[in-house]
Amino acid sequence: MQEYWIRWETWMRQHAPKLLNILNPGVTYEAVESLEKLIDSPLPADFKAFYAVHDGQRKARTGLVDGDLLLSVEDIADNWHYWQDLLDAGTFTYNDHPIASEPDTGIRSSWWNPLWIPITSDGFGNHLCLDLDPAPEGHHGQIIALWHDDNHREIVASSFREWISGYIDAIERGDYVFVKKWGIVHKGTSFNYND
């Protein structure tokens, strides 16, 4: 997985060298083990290998993933706790019945599932998640999009490797640009590029 970081960092050096300063050092084995104990599930090997190089990014106003933050393992745990607290409080039930989402085939119809592990954040409760509890038609470790105020759940990629490979390919192809105020964003996004 180091090859993806090498390619991503090469792009950053050419287009946005200051982004290199917000990368965290690699995650420790103990931190990964702690997260796996918290979620009560092993994490995919590709995810762990990727995070061994850089533990996501520091909290900043600029995001590395289409304007969103690439969460550190500590921030993943914090976001997971936030969703788990909402689940424990009964937020995702109405008249004692679970509130269902409208998922793509392969995703369970929960509003949120404790085995949906947030890996990115836009700061407003929306995430890309590792799905460690897919529906029978899905793939363990698939990447799904979760919106806090929209009931659609979308499969973005069938694995962490497929997702990061596709994202780095798109960056290198020029589908994404660096915008100082937002970070790396899709070229077609309606952000004001002069901000």
Score class of each variant (00 low, 15 high):
residue 1 M to N: 11
residue 2 Q to G: 05
residue 5 W to Y: 04
residue 8 W to V: 06
residue 9 E to T: 15
residue 9 E to L: 06
residue 10 T to D: 15
residue 12 M to Q: 12
residue 13 R to T: 15
residue 14 Q to E: 15
residue 15 H to M: 05
residue 18 K to D: 14
residue 18 K to S: 14
residue 18 K to T: 14
residue 19 L to D: 02
residue 23 L to R: 02
residue 23 L to K: 07
residue 24 N to V: 10
residue 24 N to H: 14
residue 27 V to N: 01
residue 28 T to A: 11
residue 29 Y to R: 14
residue 29 Y to I: 13
residue 41 S to K: 12
residue 42 P to C: 02
residue 43 L to E: 06
residue 43 L to A: 01
residue 44 P to K: 00
residue 46 D to H: 13
residue 49 A to M: 11
residue 50 F to P: 05
residue 52 A to L: 09
residue 54 H to D: 06
residue 55 D to G: 03
residue 55 D to T: 10
residue 56 G to A: 04
residue 59 K to G: 06
residue 63 G to P: 10
residue 65 V to C: 09
residue 65 V to G: 00
residue 68 D to Y: 00
residue 73 V to W: 01
residue 73 V to F: 02
residue 74 E to L: 10
residue 77 A to L: 07
residue 77 A to G: 13
residue 82 Y to A: 13
residue 84 Q to C: 03
residue 91 T to I: 07
residue 92 F to Y: 15
residue 94 Y to L: 13
residue 98 P to M: 01
residue 100 A to F: 13
residue 101 S to Q: 04
residue 103 P to A: 02
residue 105 T to M: 10
residue 110 S to D: 15
residue 113 N to T: 07
residue 113 N to C: 12
residue 114 P to C: 04
residue 114 P to A: 05
residue 116 W to M: 07
residue 117 I to S: 08
residue 120 T to R: 05
residue 126 N to K: 08
residue 126 N to H: 08
residue 128 L to M: 02
residue 130 L to G: 03
residue 131 D to K: 07
residue 133 D to E: 13
residue 134 P to S: 07
residue 136 P to V: 10
residue 138 G to E: 05
residue 138 G to W: 05
residue 141 G to F: 09
residue 142 Q to L: 10
residue 145 A to D: 12
residue 148 H to C: 04
residue 149 D to G: 05
residue 155 I to D: 01
residue 157 A to H: 08
residue 159 S to D: 09
residue 160 F to S: 06
residue 162 E to Q: 15
residue 169 D to P: 06
residue 170 A to D: 15
residue 172 E to F: 03
residue 174 G to R: 08
residue 176 Y to Q: 04
residue 180 K to W: 00
residue 182 W to M: 00
residue 182 W to C: 00
residue 183 G to N: 06
residue 186 H to E: 14
residue 188 G to V: 11
residue 190 S to A: 14
residue 190 S to N: 14
residue 195 D to S: 11
